[in-house]
């Protein structure tokens, strides 16, 4: 999921960085200081989520949950994910410094898209229906993310096309798991604390 430094070509790096800066700018505009504790805490929850490794046959996958983050935060997902990814690069060595823009874009843009797609559905009064939208959001964000990762690899050179083609099937299991997990999470929130979703955060 994290692309490393040195792999992508400079046009891709620059485009990614510019788009991320725009996204972060919009996100910061939409976030006032009153929201800081909420955004900070939610960003930490997603940071922790990316260390929950679920077994898959002989290997394991980790949750990404950018769909759910997008549903909760909207555009603010951009600054939240940028900070999370920056900390991951520096202190854990996941990804790289110059590809930070591309990596943030690949995870945060799907989150924002899912926010607009599932905005209505997630606020449905029936917990089941809302949870199904949550599952669509969770799985959908992974599809868009893996497509974007594949594109950023493929645009960086002919020789990466095969690797790019491998990205999509590799993400299918994660997509399925994430769909189920998001379904359960939204279902629980809807039953336990519906105002958390239904109230308009922004």
């Amino acid at each position: 999921m994290h692309i490393v430094d040195g792999a992508l070509s400079s046009p891709v790096l620059i485009t990614g960085a510019v788009l991320t800066v725009i996204g972060v700018f919009i996100g910061l505009k939409k976030m006032d200081y009153d929201h800081l504790p909420l955004v900070g805490v939610l960003a930490s929850v997603f940071f922790i989520a990316s260390y929950i490794h679920l077994p898959l046959g002989f290997s394991s996958v980790h949750l990404i949950m950018n769909g759910l983050l997008g549903i909760l935060l909207g555009w603010v997902a951009f600054p939240a994910l940028l900070v999370a990814l920056l900390l991951q690069v520096i202190f854990f060595g996941f990804g790289g410094l110059l590809v930070l823009g591309v990596n943030t874009l690949n995870i945060a843009l799907p989150a924002v898209i899912i926010y607009y797609l599932c905005y209505k559905g997630i606020r449905h009064e029936s917990a089941k229906v809302a949870a199904i939208w949550g599952a669509i959001g969770g799985a959908g964000a992974i599809i868009i993310t893996s497509l974007m990762v594949a594109f950023s690899l493929a645009l960086s050179g002919e020789s990466f096309v095969l690797a790019a083609k491998a990205v999509l099937p590799a993400h299918i299991p994660i997509m399925i798991i994430e769909g189920f997990v998001s379904y359960a999470a939204v279902y629980l929130i809807h039953t336990v604390k519906p105002e958390f979703i239904t109230k308009d955060a922004h």
Binding site: V45, I48, M65, I177, A185, L188, K193, F196
Partner: peptide, 22 residues
């Protein structure tokens, strides 16, 4: 079952965290 339980865990973590943020 695992995925459902982890989903519940995650949802509960979110709720508790948001209450904490408040």
């Amino acid at each position: 079952h695992t995925w459902k339980s982890i989903g519940y865990l995650f949802g509960m973590l979110l709720i508790r965290s948001v209450e904490r943020a408040e």
